[in-house]
Design a binder for these strands. Structure first.
Lengths: 208, 208, 208, 208
DNA sequence: CATGAATGAGACTTCATTCAT
DNA sequence: CATGAATGAAGTCTCATTCAT
């Protein structure tokens, strides 16, 4: 079973390591360019230059510029989802929220980039493929959230009734997204006070 | 104060009504195009067609495409700020939040468009002019919010201590922004339950 | 009636003389380039240069390179058809055939170009739009031919029975096309002898 | 004579059978691709894929794409010429012409392809190498034709005077080419009537 | 004031060809 | 002998912007 699961994920990686490394190089470069200039303004030429390869070569690994955009989006979404899976307690959550905010504000490159996140949501309004990807990821995250909220506290959950958990998860997601938006303006805000406020919010959100 | 603010904006309005009408036509067209295709993908030609005028004429009223983008952004921000100014009680707030969410989800054309809002925030990351505009608007809204939160309830406020109000305002803003983001995916959500959850959030947010 | 017919043809011409002149410039340039390099090898840039305008401008008058190709094809076909309409007697035909051959061989620019004709037929094999255009023109020419062959000689026709005329028209068309193909190699051939041979062929083709 | 002709072509065949097999694979693939997409639109990559070999390998057997085109043209010409060599009587000729037409129309892969034939003639207009190849083949076929037409009927010929034969051969060639052109449009035509018409044409063409 | 024709830069993409492995 | 990754040039097309009319 574990082997199978491994095989399922490893498939493309191990099948052709060289190709996968190239895809990786392209995606990293693309991510940088998209962050710097946006999906539309970033040119294939600039991505190629960042990836240190010819523009034509990228078409061996991606059908389209659009395919690259999609891949970047999927990637960022997966990364975001991984964070949710790690939640354990209410104090975790408050700390995480504050942590995310600070890292978004600092434009930590290891995290889902806030500007990219906003742009992909805006684009979802117009591109059905992106909308589908986003919706799927959004729902998956909400499912994880609901599972965590409705699990008993003995099992590392919060112990909310299921119906309540669904709406709370939605509100929580909205709050997280809002922190991402707020982070892009890099407003100066008192850290300790913010921590208290977020903490209070979270308390209420997780209360029965 | 109100007079000053009015005077600052009124300049172009009273100077030349004809020109202002033209600007208005262009901005309406541009807003539609930007919503439909995004800031970059919308072409000057499509805006001109929507505005039923020649492409060249637009350059008589706006220096370039970027100036139109900026103007649209300022416009949307002003509109958003107007809503905040009307807040009076905590029940107002909860109802407003739910109302905004539903109208964003329905893509109500009379409201600040969610996709546009996301895109302008993303763009603020890259364009200092947009960043400044957004930051100014954001701070103004927060000031209004803080004023309302810290005014005594006898004067139609909430009566929070000033230091507390500042952070609460920030958190509240984040929550509103998050609702805008959440609205673009048009997820199905139980309306009554959401109302309850938002209400509870607001209660906490406004509690002493 | 004449006025109507005039209006019908003049439509695009008189509607916007400037635009029509530009289209004409483009088409002339395109024809030259297509003759010189073929439909595929001729670049939009080379056409633009020949037409002495920027490449981008051509897209104001034609949606596509393909649209230009199509227009050129239709144009050549119309021109070809006009010749058939003028046939009156069997001596006309023999003289015309020889005349066509010589002009094809000399690459007379005022005539349907042989290389272009071959290429468009080859392309008809792959592009349904071109196939349709060619087929329509081919059939129209054959109808004209049949009409002429089956009209009584008193009315300037040949007086063949209708069923016979149909096949003869087909064979005659094939022969004409074959002369076009033969012309591209510019073989040296005794003119007088060729005239006699063509004459004999035509005699037989028009005999009862 | 036959030995000499054989020797001229045999060079590469006997020198290295392996290499010749590879060339053959490439040429078959190229022919298919050229028929499907035309000389220009067919890519080396598609030819390589059809030939089930790497793109790079083809350059071991052909200097460049143009060399492949040339080889394909020579090949098709040889094939065409082989048919002429088999002519024996006037009834042969009429039957052959009809047969060719039907097979061209049906796009019989075993026969010189009509679209390819047209394209190579068009290209001969621009590429001197192709022109030379075509002219040589054309003349060779005409010589064969003249030989047959001027041979006495006792020796399986038609018995025309030589000067007459030259022109008749030219006209006959033109007619055959015309049938090839006509075949690409795949017009519906009454088979029996066409047979009669072709027969009559041929009668006249071979008459003294 | 208004038009829309015109330009030129630049975007995406394809492809013949080469070369390290 | 064979591969296929890599390149660079070239091709089609779009678009913000200008300017003669």
């Amino acid at each position: 079973m574990a082997a199978m699961a491994g095989a399922m994920n490893a498939g493309p990686v191990t099948e052709n390591p060289r190709a996968e490394a190239q895809r990786e190089r392209i995606l990293c470069a693309a991510q940088q360019c998209f962050i710097d200039h946006g999906f539309h303004a970033a040119s294939m030429a600039s991505i190629a230059e960042t990836a240190q390869m010819s523009a034509g070569l990228m078409y061996r690994y991606f059908e389209n510029k659009n395919a690259i955009v999609l891949a970047i989006i999927e990637r960022q979404l997966e990364e975001g989802r991984a964070h949710v899976a790690r939640l354990r307690s209410s104090s975790d959550l408050a700390a995480d929220l504050l942590g995310f905010f600070e890292r978004w504000r600092a434009r930590d490159p290891g995290l889902m980039n806030a500007a990219l996140f906003l742009e992909m949501n805006a684009e979802a309004t117009r591109d059905p493929q992106i909308a589908t990807a986003l919706r799927r990821s959004d729902e998956a995250m909400r499912r994880d959230l609901v599972a965590w909220l409705s699990r008993s506290s003995g099992e590392g959950g919060i112990g909310l009734p299921r119906e309540v958990a669904v709406t709370r998860a939605f509100v929580l997601q909205a709050f997280v997204k809002g922190l991402a938006v707020s982070a892009v303006l890099q407003a100066e805000i008192d850290h300790a006070a913010l921590e208290a406020a977020i903490d209070a919010q979270v308390q209420r959100l997780l209360a029965p």
